[in-house]
């Protein structure tokens, strides 16, 4: 490095240090005034909501993926059955067509009759299997209810976070038109949001994880609990 460059770097270094100190002072000032106004608590609350929102989004992502897999797997199992029903019927129909055009010996006809009866006997079982897969596809749609409940809950959380952040913003802008406009916005929003807060601890929607205090993770546990209680 040339002498001149070193000098510039040193100068910038001193300048940078100065800036860091000033930013530090400003940050401290901001923190102190936020604490005085009680706003750090608001920000804290907003930040605390984020992991919960992430867990909910995770739940939605995995439930929708599972549902898609379930439906696609059922289709994969049903399609070969449908193809078999179709191709065997077509083949038999073709053979009968040929036979009617040119009636063959009884022995050959007998084989065709046997094949046809075999096919007719096999169709109900294949149709039942297909119906089972259709039912599976239908049941896979239950994710809509479960994720819907979780998404509704998340929208409440987002509204809450927005409120807290707006509160912080409101306190940090100086008195004036801008502040009045913000205040108005918050009041309008709160007025529009007339939905009753669901504080009741019995209405929680789906559990995001099966583990946890006081949570049943499957139907067997529900049945056991009811048995224990004598119901």
């Amino acid at each position: 490095m040339s002498g001149e460059a070193r000098q510039v770097a040193a100068h910038e270094g001193a300048h940078g240090d100065d800036l860091v100190v000033r930013i530090g002072q400003l940050t401290r000032m901001l923190r102190e005034s936020m604490r005085e106004l009680g706003l750090d608590k608001e920000v804290e609350k907003a930040a605390e909501a984020i992991p919960d929102a992430r867990a909910r989004l995770n739940y939605v992502a995995s439930m929708t993926e599972q549902a898609a897999d379930r439906a696609l797997n059922a289709v994969d199992r049903a399609q070969p059955l449908q193809n078999e029903i179709e191709s065997r019927a077509e083949s038999l129909d073709q053979q009968w067509q040929t036979w009617f055009e040119n009636p063959m010996e009884l022995d050959q006809a007998r084989q065709l009759v046997t094949d046809t009866r075999g096919y007719l006997a096999a169709v109900p079982e294949m149709a039942r299997e297909t119906s089972k897969e259709l039912l599976e596809i239908m049941m896979a749609q239950d994710f809509q209810d479960l994720t819907g409940q979780v998404i509704k809950k998340m929208m409440e959380v987002i509204l809450e976070v927005e409120n807290q952040l707006l509160q912080v913003l409101l306190e940090s802008v100086p008195e004036g038109d801008e502040r009045e406009a913000l205040k108005q916005r918050m009041e309008d929003r709160n007025a529009a949001d007339t939905r009753k807060r669901e504080e009741a601890s019995l209405v929680n929607g789906p559990q995001l994880t099966a583990e946890g205090e006081g949570i049943v993770s499957n139907q067997d546990q529900v049945d056991d609990l009811l048995d224990e209680l004598g119901f």
């Binding site: 479960l146 409940q149 019995l202 209405v203 929680n204 789906p206 559990q207 949570i215 529900v222 609990l225």
Partner: peptide
Amino acid sequence: AEAKKENIV
């Protein structure tokens, strides 16, 4: 979907 013990009770 309510799966807390107190719900079932």
